[in-house]
Design a protein around this nucleic acid. Structure first.
Lengths: 211, 211
DNA sequence: CGAATACATCTTGTATATCAGTTGTTTATT
DNA sequence: AATAAACAACTGATATACAAGATGTATTCG
């Protein structure tokens, strides 16, 4: 655990506020204001913002201001495309490498998400679905892949929250990961990759229609 | 153009120094020393180091110091694995999306790299091969994928420079991208993905043997 | 002589102050 | 009235100063 510097806490706090929409896309933020709100000095807040900018969660316009990055349709399509490129590869690798414990944990999460769909609790569904993908990525135990994938998954989570915020929750758009899970359990890399690709393609198409 | 803040210049400079081994793996760096060397204050240097830490080019040990991240065998294998996961997806997408101009530029680079191999100029080979992969990624015009891939490619470049630094350059280890190029030119996503996977697997195996 | 503790020093972490660039507004000129 | 130049206010960018944690060393006690 890399220590708890103020800038680490500020980073985590702000990221959470951005992803859960307490700081909605487009919000302009101000270093000094944030500093006094969070109870830190300007320096740790500034460092946190710099890191969030590298993640593309905020956009810094030098000497002009900093804003929470907006979510345009092209941006969202990029997120899905990048997820497809990375997570398909991850699924392929994970099929060969997953331990029994990993698979059991994944099964629990997938079943939990399936229950959420039945109760149309979309916030909980999002969290469980997110957890499924995060867990999958962590299975491959590759810090570099994990960095890239975790960031994309958070972008994705932010998008879905935005998407469903003022929209009726629809069961059709809450896709199951059952196929992926069964492919992983039978240690079939190609099927796992295909399941992931189908999963992501289907949601991407849904978004493209509904946006 | 995202303005030229001192911290941007410091970031670019330090990244270059790390990747071209002027700051070899394991070097411990000191904020104030770097600051006076580069002619900046401590703040921009510190921000640059924070960004480099996110890229895993340096490792910050809070209140203890900062070091250029060492290159262990497991790290290198992670780099190759992550490249496989991402670049295969990139090749797949690029096959459908590449413009004629992109393909022409790629052809020039591939041929250039092939010439470098004949003259066993490994530094120039590395640069051209790097350019091939960077160009490929830029073809898909997806900033998120580009972020992730560019970082991995720089890690990879650093590794190869380290690898060949005190080793006789061997033609066998300088692989061609001709197959990949031809797959792209015939707009065949599956073949492009396969070519990329073979390319990366072969070099990974070479490394695993020689390390 | 060995171990533990106190201390000196080095390095990063944070706060405060100053500098500099951008923008929008005001004012003067045509 | 329209345009352009000067200016004022705001924001981030950087420098300087100070605080705090960590490590190695020296000293002291058993």
């Amino acid at each position: 655990m890399p220590a708890q510097r103020d800038s680490d806490i500020a980073y985590a706090t702000l990221q959470e506020m951005i992803v859960d929409l307490r700081l909605p896309p487009g919000t302009v933020v101000n270093e000094s204001a944030l500093a006094s709100e969070l109870g830190f000095g300007r320096v740790p807040v500034r460092e946190a913002l710099a890191r969030l900018a590298k993640d593309r969660f905020v956009t810094i316009m030098p000497r002009r201001g900093t804003a929470v990055t907006p979510l345009t349709l092209p941006d969202v399509l990029d997120i899905f495309e990048a997820r497809e490129a990375i997570e398909c590869g991850v699924a392929y690798i994970a099929a060969a490498r997953a331990s029994e414990e990993d698979l059991a944990a994944l099964r629990t999460l997938v079943e939990s998400a399936d229950r959420d769909r039945e109760s149309t609790d979309y916030e909980q569904f999002l969290l469980d679905d997110h957890a499924v993908h995060v867990t999958l990525v962590h299975m491959v135990k590759n810090a570099l892949l994990q960095d890239a994938a975790d960031r994309l998954l958070l972008h994705s989570l932010r998008f879905w929250r935005m998407h469903w915020k003022n929209r009726p929750p629809s069961k059709d758009a809450m896709l199951s990961n059952a196929d992926l899970l069964s492919a992983l359990e039978s240690r079939d890399p190609v099927r796992a990759e295909t399941a992931m690709r189908d999963h992501l393609n289907t949601s991407r198409q849904l978004v493209q229609i509904l946006f």
